[in-house]
Design a protein around this nucleic acid. Structure first.
Length: 587
RNA sequence: GCCAAGGUAGCUCAGGGGCAGAGCAGCUCACUCGUAAUGAGCAGGUCGUCGGUUCAAAUCCGACUCUUGGCUCCA
């Protein structure tokens, strides 16, 4: 069975790998018991579980999963051995004569490859293994089937659509239970759910799928993100640009986007006999600014950043909340520098990225360094120089990294940064990419110290990636309980009874005047209901205000974590809040 | 784009050829209250859109659209 593609961190020898792989076989047998004519495709172990692809006489319904699971439990309880056998090609072809997908895999195996088959009970599969020795090593209470999905044979949309069943499998029931708990937590933190519950954003089918509407509370968070982002960029020597949203075809012909990227671009808008395109990237615009004057080596490096909104056509089936959209704002930047400056610039970009990620509460990062692919532009020396500077930067920061040989874009090598969120999931966010293509295409130059016109190095980088997607990750990372500096409402003042409405309003007004996002809750509800509501809204601090507080000029603080502190002098709370915001404390 | 499942009140969801439902939220009124839901009343709908079948369609059929789970690529 071909399973090279899966990114499992488990090695093939791990027991969990064997368990998942073997459970996939047991599932295939169960499916064959239900549908003797089923055609089986591939069924590898994957992160947390396994899947198997089938070509079936009818579509599976969710109830079928229970039936299949029941059959699997039977098979597992029957104590069958997994036996391995090495066969020659002719024998294998005979064995899988009515299994067209297996025959295709067989045909594609290198001639000298050892062909092994595994048999459990009545089910024999073409498979490299390894497996557990006996179904006794599979616990009937340690696996669960999760979902049915369509999947193209070999991921190719021109090939038949198969039915895939996903399952999760573990070495013991407790591990399964923990994983199911984890899945529940993932669901609870889903940014689409929290986006609604916390009134952060929406999308509208009538107005265009894949387009994000930021509500006032989402807007407050975005404003806090952008304010921090701009300040950090200023401090790090960046200038901020603003460029148009559309550009004439000349721009995209020159950049090459119309040749290589047009299926991701929105179609042209015709105006005054010219075609205008919504920008899928900001780079050509930044280059236009670069080219407004003769550039001297003395003014390099130029670090130009833009929160640029771009539009890319994505197939309808792949849109997903904030994570996968058609219009998004990149926190883009381009660095134009001399070849000599490249190393320092890259190191600083990487350091800068790490600082930004830390500020947003992400400290677990991993780098992926992608090098020259077969088809590429730019000289070998330039590629070499660029890769060395990328590698040096990673080493200097002591970042964990993986090489992706040949995985660079045709126009240059890159570092991608993946972050780990609170649930341990990995998200690819930042990218730092060399570009040997655009400076050439746009004939960018600078005048060097020797008076010669030379080609500048160009580096693209996006740190947060897109504000929309970053927002999605941020929501899920914090489960909607944003750190104080990002929280859309930082403080709600709650009077214990209507008699104290004025005091609650006054405190909220003072907080607002001091620059905090504070609101009084003067609604008709009882205090308990208010607390319940704002707790659900994950407001960092509720101030409970009654007679005692009013007389003392104090506040009683009920943080969302629940540890109540009563009778804190007002000034003390203001100072504390100032500090929390300044240090970007979670609470 | 493809396969499957969905779309009913602002939200979460029930109903499944014969009068459009619940809880929460909203509005009004009463209660004047000290740490996670005070009570009563009112209002709220082209049942995703268009077409078909039928005496009658939210319900059955078809097309479209969007959402969801995946497949390819990827910020």
């Amino acid at each position: 069975m071909a399973d090279e593609a899966q990114k499992e961190k488990l090695s093939r020898d791990d027991q969990l790998y064997r368990i998942r792989h073997s459970t996939a076989h047991v599932m295939a047998e169960a499916v064959l018991r239900m549908f003797p004519d089923a055609k089986i495709a591939i069924g590898p172990p994957i992160e947390n579980g396994f899947y198997y692809d089938f070509d079936l006489p009818r579509h599976l319904a969710p109830e079928d999963l229970e039936t299949i699971e029941g059959l699997m439990r039977d098979i597992v309880s029957e104590d069958h051995a997994f036996s391995r056998e090495v066969v020659d090609r002719a024998r294998a072809t005979e064995l899988f004569a009515d299994q067209e997908y297996k025959l295709e895999i067989l045909r594609d195996l290198p001639p000298d490859e050892e062909i092994s088959i595994y048999t459990v009970d009545t089910f024999t599969d073409l498979c490299r293994g390894p497996h557990v020795e006996n179904t006794k090593q599979l616990n009937p209470k340690s696996f669960k089937l999760l979902s049915i999905a369509g999947a193209y044979w070999r991921g190719d949309e021109k090939r038949p659509m198969l039915q895939r069943i996903y399952g999760t499998a573990w070495d013991q029931p407790k591990a399964l239970r923990q994983h199911l708990e984890w899945l529940k937590e993932v669901e609870k933190r889903d940014h689409r759910r929290l986006g609604k519950e916390l009134d952060l954003f929406s999308v509208h089918e009538e107005a265009g799928p894949g387009m994000i509407y930021w509500h006032p509370k989402g807007g407050r968070i975005r404003e806090a993100i952008e304010d921090y982002w701009r300040g950090a960029h200023r401090r790090d020597g960046y200038e901020v640009l603003y460029t148009p949203h559309i550009g004439k075809s000349w721009l995209w012909e020159t950049s090459g986007h119309l040749d290589f990227y047009s299926e991701s671009m929105y179609p042209a808008i015709e105006m005054d006999k010219a075609d205008y395109y919504a920008k899928p990237m900001n780079c050509p615009f930044h280059i236009m600014i670069y080219k407004t004057g003769l550039r001297s080596y003395r003014e390099l490096p130029l670090r130009w950043a833009e929160l640029g909104t771009v539009y890319r056509y994505e197939k309808s089936g792949v849109l997903h909340g904030l994570m996968r959209v058609r219009g998004f704002t990149q926190d883009d930047a381009h660095i134009f520098c001399t070849p000599d400056q490249v190393e320092d610039e890259i190191l600083e970009v990487l350091r800068f990225s790490l600082r930004i990620w830390e500020a947003f509460g992400f400290t677990n990062l991993k780098a992926y360094l992608a090098t020259k692919p077969e088809k590429a532009v730019g000289s070998d020396e330039d590629w070499e120089r660029a890769v060395v500077s990328l590698k040096k930067a990673i080493d200097a920061e002591g970042l964990e990294y993986e090489m992706d040989e040949g995985g660079g874009a045709f126009y240059g090598p890159k570092i991608d940064l993946k972050i780990h969120d609170a649930l341990g999931r990995e998200w690819q966010m930042s990218t730092i990419q060399f570009d040997f293509n655009l400076p050439e295409r746009f004939d960018m130059t600078f005048v060097d110290s020797d008076g010669q016109e030379k080609r500048p190095f160009m580096v693209h980088r996006a740190l947060l990636g897109s504000l929309e997607r970053f927002f999605g990750v941020l929501i899920e990372h914090y489960g909607g309980a944003f750190p104080v500096w990002l929280a859309p409402v930082q403080v709600v003042t709650i009077p214990v009874a209507p008699a104290f409405n004025d005091y609650a309003a006054a405190i909220a007004a003072e907080l607002t005047a001091a620059g905090f996002r504070a609101e009084p809750d003067l609604s008709d509800s009882r205090m308990g209901a208010k607390i319940r509501h704002h707790q659900a809204q994950k407001v960092p601090y509720m101030l409970i205000l009654g007679e005692k507080e009013q007389e003392a000029g104090a506040v009683s603080i009920r943080p969302r974590t629940g540890e109540q502190v009563n009778g804190v002098p007002k000034d003390e709370f203001f100072a504390m809040l100032t500090d929390k915001v300044k240090t970007r404390a979670e609470i």
